[in-house]
Design a protein around this nucleic acid. Structure first.
Length: 422
RNA sequence: GUGGGUAUAGCUCAGUCGGUUAGAGCGCCAGUUUGUGGCACUGGAGGUCGUCGGUUCGAUCCCGAUUAUCCACCCCA
């Protein structure tokens, strides 16, 4: 078959046979957000490019080389959203949502676009569930957000993820740390890989995360962020750790965690797995106390996370989580002959209007083929309608799982109540 | 952006040391007598062997390019 064109690189269709998995995942996430007191927010798929330059940070890879940016017919520079947080903050400011009282706790589920080279767990269009909590500077808010992530992961039956946390400090203490880090790495420069020489300039934190053997050796004894925090940041981090422990949430402090978005301050965290390939971060986020102000709003602390739906489904798949399939056809009405055919059409239509998921043949198949079809689509019950039944005013309703049949009066009401009572 | 693997039926894959009509399993459709699915058996439909070019008497197979896809780096969800 010559196909005109395939789907764009890095995008994925969700075919009918698979949607139930997405629906299950989405329902679970929605319920979890509600239980934690978060409400949904929706925003456009594209924004002014400026928002991301300032919000995400114009030195980040996401902004520098991964954005889908174009000029619209009005000459505006528009960008397809590469991540959700900037849009949320923009919407909050634009609609003065903070005026209704703080904290403001919102969640979203939306596609993101990044021009990347696709691989396992990495797409050009991917979907994220994310939450943002604005207004509280307290570590309790951090614990609440992390607690929400921990909860939905466990509700989804995902056990193969580990929580890693770190604190990367604030604008007060971070420069000092960066200096200490640069000074340390400069004394070992000859052992670092070429990419890390670049990293040293842009973001020395990244060197800590390099997988190169030489870099690992050097990074092992590098100064830790946590040793260079100002008292405020250090106290915040301690408070978070004790909150998590009190909540029974297992974590490890990983001083190599660095996030690629500029707005993070203090707490950063990741839930990672090793069962879906190299892109193992299933949920990542942190605090961004300077972001709201950077986007022109009042100085407001906040934090949040993003979680990739495709990756969550991959982990669920890899760890054998069984996702319940929704009910399909409740009653298949097989018809023999033209008279029964049109009676069946009427019957099925009325049953559907009465709330019964009924089906009939539209392919002109033989009775046997109709039965086969009913079986294939997973019909719970099946009724054969022919001249005999029409004359007698009664049909046999066959239970497709047991193979036994019971008689029922040939009326919409009788059949509907028979199916519903089961 | 860099590197490696792969490309044959709807799906998972064989195969041709280069030679006539390219196969299997699963799936789909039909039949195995007259009004009943799952099991079994039989048959059928379905492929320009990713695309373009080169070598050759001859290419699905060898070579080159291109595209797609998978995986890793980078980065992130």
């Amino acid at each position: 078959m010559a196909l005109l064109t395939g789907a764009p690189r890095g995008t994925k269709d969700v075919i009918p046979a698979q949607v139930y998995k997405w629906q299950y995942l989405e329902d679970t996430l929605r319920r979890c957000a509600r239980d934690f007191g978060f409400t949904e927010i929706r925003f456009p798929t594209f924004e002014h490019t400026e928002l991301f330059l300032r919000g995400v940070g114009d030195t980040t890879d996401v902004v520098q080389k991964e954005m889908y940016t174009f000029q619209d017919k009005g000459g505006r520079s528009i960008t397809l959203r590469p991540e959700g947080t900037a849009s949320v903050v923009r919407s909050v400011l634009e609609n003065s949502l903070y005026a209704a009282g703080l904290p403001l706790k919102v969640w979203y589920m939306a596609p993101n676009y990044r021009y990347e080279k696709p691989q396992a767990g990495r797409l050009r269009e991917h979907h994220q569930f994310g939450v943002e909590s604005l207004g509280s500077a307290s570590a309790t808010a951090d614990a609440e957000v992390i607690g929400l992530a921990d909860t939905f992961l466990s509700r989804l039956g995902i056990q193969t993820v580990a929580l890693r946390i770190n604190s990367i400090g604030c604008p007060k203490c971070r420069p000092g740390y960066h200096e200490a880090l640069r000074a340390y790495f400069n004394t070992h420069e000859e052992k670092l890989c070429p990419t890390c020489h670049e990293r040293l300039e842009r973001n020395p934190l990244r060197v800590l995360d390099c997988k190169d053997e030489g870099c690992r050796g050097v990074a092992k004894d590098a100064p830790h962020t946590t040793d260079h925090l100002c008292t405020e940041c250090a106290e915040h981090f301690e408070k978070l750790k004790s909150c998590l422990s009190a909540m029974g949430i297992v974590y490890t402090v990983d001083t190599r965690i660095v996030r690629g978005l500029d707005y993070y301050t203090k707490t950063v965290f990741e839930f990672v797995t090793d069962c879906i390939g190299a892109q193992g971060t299933v949920c990542g986020g942190g605090r961004y106390d300077g972001l709201v102000e950077a986007l022109g709003g009042p100085s407001t602390p906040g934090l949040g996370f993003g979680s990739g739906l495709e990756r969550l489904l991959m982990v669920m798949e890899a760890s054998g989580v069984e996702i319940p399939k929704p009910d399909g056809c409740a009653l298949f009405v097989a018809a023999i002959g033209e008279r029964a055919q049109s009676e069946a059409t009427l019957l099925v239509h009325k049953l559907r209007r009465a709330g019964v998921a009924a089906e009939q043949d539209t392919m002109g198949r033989s009775l046997k083929a109709q039965m086969k079809y009913a079986d294939r689509i997973g019909a719970r019950y099946c009724a054969v309608l022919g001249d005999d039944e029409l004359d007698a005013g009664e049909v046999k309703i066959k239970d497709m799982t047991t193979g036994t049949a019971e008689p029922c009066a040939l009326s919409v009401e009788a059949i509907a109540s028979y199916i519903k009572q089961k």
